[in-house]
């Protein structure tokens, strides 16, 4: 089977054509290794970065921004968001601190993308 993608590895936006079948995958149109890797991954199972926020108490702000420490399968993004919608953490938080470990068994952690001190009352 042949699938066409636009590479999102860098701004160059190469048009990729990926041929698969019989456990063998070939990528055309890529101009670098990252493009090849993106083509292979996009063909097999598209992955995306996920960034969002979670509720935070006791900090200077009401929301704590978070980022996935690796790609998440595109078809699991909504499920992951549903987990994040329900979370509330407490300040202080340090950047890189794990907010959700191995979210939905993807092997990816959701970590804080900023530090937030606790506010003294």
């Amino acid at each position: 089977m042949t699938k066409d993608f636009v590479c999102i590895a860098c701004p160059e936006s190469c048009r990729l054509r990926v041929n698969g079948g019989g456990g063998c995958v070939s990528v055309e149109g890529n101009r670098c290794k990252r493009g090849y890797e993106h083509g292979v991954s996009e063909y097999a199972r598209p992955m995306r970065m996920l960034t969002s926020t979670v509720a935070v108490s006791g900090g200077i702000l009401r929301r704590l921004p978070v980022i996935a420490d690796g790609g998440i399968p595109k078809d699991k993004i909504w499920e992951c968001l549903n987990v994040l919608y329900k979370i509330r953490v407490k300040a202080p938080v340090t950047i890189g601190g794990v907010i959700v470990e191995n979210i939905l068994n993807t092997g990816v952690n959701i970590v804080a993308s900023r530090s937030m001190n606790a506010v003294k009352i």
Binding site: M49, T51, V66, I67, I95, S113, R114, S115
Partner: peptide
Amino acid sequence: CIHDGFGIHRFKKRMSGNEYAQ
């Protein structure tokens, strides 16, 4: 700017805007 794609030149990795600022 909580989305990723910052810092590719300076830190050689994709960071969120927050991480870059931090």
